[in-house]
Amino acid sequence: MTAAAEWVKLWTVRSTWWCVAASVTLMGCTAFLLANDFVYDIEHPDQQSVRDTAATTQSIVDPAAASVSLAQFAVIALAMLVITSEYSTGAIRSTLRAVPVRGRVLLAKAAVAAAATFGAGLVLAVAGLFAARLGLREYAVVDLGDAGAVAVRIAVYLALVAVFSVGMGAALRSAVGTLSAVLVLLVGLSMVVPEPASEYMPGVAGGMFVADGDASGALILVAWTGAVLAAGYAVIRRRDA
């Protein structure tokens, strides 16, 4: 019942719809541009001082997988708003009066954000694959099995990132603080932590999982997500609403 109520709440504010639309648009545009870039490089070898690849074709999976790192921002916004908007508006007090068992509220919010972003993830993965196909033109390699697998991985990755953002929102409450912390952990750490250790950072590990189906990457991201959710639970359980 708690999750059903959270589901109603999620889809009865406009920001959710805006975020879904934004993530699909970001995904499509980025995948198309990346694909276009690849084609341009092939067709204009003279303008390339350094060619980073000798490939003359590309799988539509590659631009799609690479675009997730941008499209995820809209998904993070959607997920963190599930909880930070309640603190900023005071609606959390209505929520906790209705369901005073705080762990149940947090789990319901995480589950709803995960379910919504998993669904949205499939949609935007398909949008990204189509855009990549369009952008790559005759240089595209299409393998439906690969495409299906990457779509599921993108959806799983985004669902995990959503839970991560909900946990962070519960821990920090403010939208600005939550967004900053999620970006630092997901993007910032990947850039400042040096090579071998960086593979244990959530952003890098998640990226490896999306691109190559790397199972250890998935596990590392799951561990990070669990830790952040636990931190969120520790705060929401103790602190005054």
Binding site: A5, T89, S94
Partner: peptide
């Protein structure tokens, strides 16, 4: 209970706010 009057998400309609509350408690 009625606490602060403005403890509702400003973007949600009155009806949807109450629908969600109702659903959470059967």
């Amino acid at each position: 209970a009625l606490l602060d009057a403005r403890a509702v998400h400003p973007g949600r309609s009155a009806r949807n706010h109450l629908r969600a509350m109702a659903r959470s408690n059967g």
